[in-house]
Amino acid sequence: MSETDNTAPGPTAEDEPRRDFLVKLSLGLGGVAALAVGVPVVSALLAPLLQADPQTWRKVGTLADFDIGSTHLVKFENANPVAWSGVSSESAAWLRRDSATAFTAFSVNCAHLGCPVRWEPGAGLFMCPCHGGIYYKDGSVAAGPPPRGLTQYHIRISGHDVELLTAPIPITDITAS
């Protein structure tokens, strides 16, 4: 090959449009290839935005479990756990029985940066261990950095069961101040 190449004539002006076309073809085809492969790759990256998570009612106990006026930590499974979630698909809420038929359920996530708040029955306050956010019994801010009160879950009574509607981790946005 190399021997014939040595004797071959050099590039001529007639080759110019042909080479120009081939360069464009190589770049264009490369772009198409990248785009084709890019779709599934970017989809994997953006998967959480392309698929909506469902919400579902979870039983967190029966009416007999909760005395009127008492506040309990209830645990439940998220709406759509994958098989390899283990305990990480659990969530918790602070459930208070206000009356025979009324319940209030607070998210455990502090409205500041999401750390788990603790109900202190003696003080009647929710306290956050991370940056010292403190909330009153009704979930409104008592002290510390949280820009808004604790988020609440929906609760319904179904026969003797107390059920909670799962929800996303409440993300405090910039408008909450």
């Binding site: 953006l46 998570d53 283990g86 990480s88 799962t166 910039i174």
Partner: peptide
């Protein structure tokens, strides 16, 4: 912001 948070956790909540 909410979408970026969702992207970070891979969903609405912590999980697999």
């Amino acid at each position: 912001g909410t979408y970026v948070a969702r992207l970070l956790l891979g969903g609405d909540t912590i999980g697999g």
